[in-house]
């Protein structure tokens, strides 16, 4: 009987065939992740351009990509300030949503009475369509920007509130017991146990709230900006549609959608940076 030697000889490659194949596949996937969407974009824009030129579609029905690009450049002096306003509106709404949502969530978890008293109203505020509230805000709040901000805030704050509340309550029971045994104070419990446990939930809420803040801002601009106060990108878009300036309309639309993408990307990055060391959701499968 002989024993087969299973150790590899010194001349064997450090990587076996399977590993090498996996490595190649990973590289291919990495490139494809950027290449494929870019390709789709190019093809779509090209098809759009050909359709508009070959079929001679009038620009007030569908402006071609060239016209949109032209508007983007020529109207930049108009669009850029509008972008700043919408951006400021969205970010401020998000900021206040974070402050309000987290504060309220902490209050709710610290006091059952506070939660029982106010949670139903938070829900009511959330389920009432913001489009229905916006005109009222416009009446009661003189400053159009503040009215729009309130509007966007109402939409953005709920996911932060509800997610953070769930997160603060989702602490490990054994860790709770451990903190009790070591005589932790309320503050220590919040700071060292509840807050870190809630972080992944909060960041999930933040991602949703970022998108909602933009939607809230757009809705607010549609409703409140209509009074001729000329707020941001969405107001510009609406105005352009009245004037049949479809190049500018599409340019504003593209800018809004780019803003949404940037917000989402930034929120995802924040979430990744905060969690990648320890949380399962940020764990890459080996």
């Amino acid at each position: 009987m002989s024993v087969t030697d299973t150790t590899t000889s010194a001349s064997a490659p450090t990587e076996d065939a399977e590993e090498a194949a996996r490595y190649r596949r990973d590289r291919r996937m990495k490139v494809a992740r950027w290449m494929l969407p870019s390709l789709v974009l190019v093809v779509t824009v090209l098809a759009w351009h050909l359709y508009v030129t070959l079929w001679e579609v009038p620009h007030y029905i569908l402006p071609g990509p060239v016209l949109v690009a032209q508007s983007l450049i020529e109207d930049w002096g108009l669009l850029y300030p509008a972008l700043l306003i919408t951006g400021r509106l969205t970010l401020l709404a998000l900021l206040f949503a974070v402050i309000g949502g987290v504060t309220l969530a902490v209050a709710f978890t610290q006091s059952k009475w506070a939660e029982m008293s106010f949670f139903p109203y938070a829900v009511i505020l959330q389920v009432t369509p913001v489009v229905a509230i916006a005109p009222l805000l416009q009446i009661y709040v003189e400053n159009a920007f503040v009215a729009a901000l309130l509007c966007a805030w109402i939409v953005a704050f709920f996911p932060i509130l509800s997610n953070t509340t769930i997160g603060l309550k989702s602490t490990d029971h054994n860790l709770e017991d451990l903190f009790t045994i070591y005589g932790a104070t309320r503050w220590q419990r919040l700071r060292y146990l509840a807050a870190p446990s809630a972080l992944p939930y909060f960041l999930g809420g933040l991602k949703i709230a970022g998108g909602l803040a933009l939607i809230g801002a757009v809705v607010a601009e549609f409703v409140i900006g209509r009074a001729g106060t000329g707020l941001g990108l969405a107001s510009t878009l609406l105005e352009a549609s009245y004037r049949f300036n479809f190049g500018r309309l599409y340019a504003a639309l593209i800018m809004i959608s780019c803003m949404g993408v940037v917000i989402f990307a930034v929120m995802s990055l924040i979430s990744y940076l905060a969690l990648f060391r320890w949380h399962e959701s940020a764990l890459k499968r080996e």
């Binding site: 860790l175 451990l178 870190p196």
Partner: peptide, 20 residues
Amino acid sequence: PTLMPWARVVDNVYLPFRLR
């Protein structure tokens, strides 16, 4: 084990002192 997943090993061991 009931460790705090967000804290490094050394911080987990330090916990009883921190709470004091």
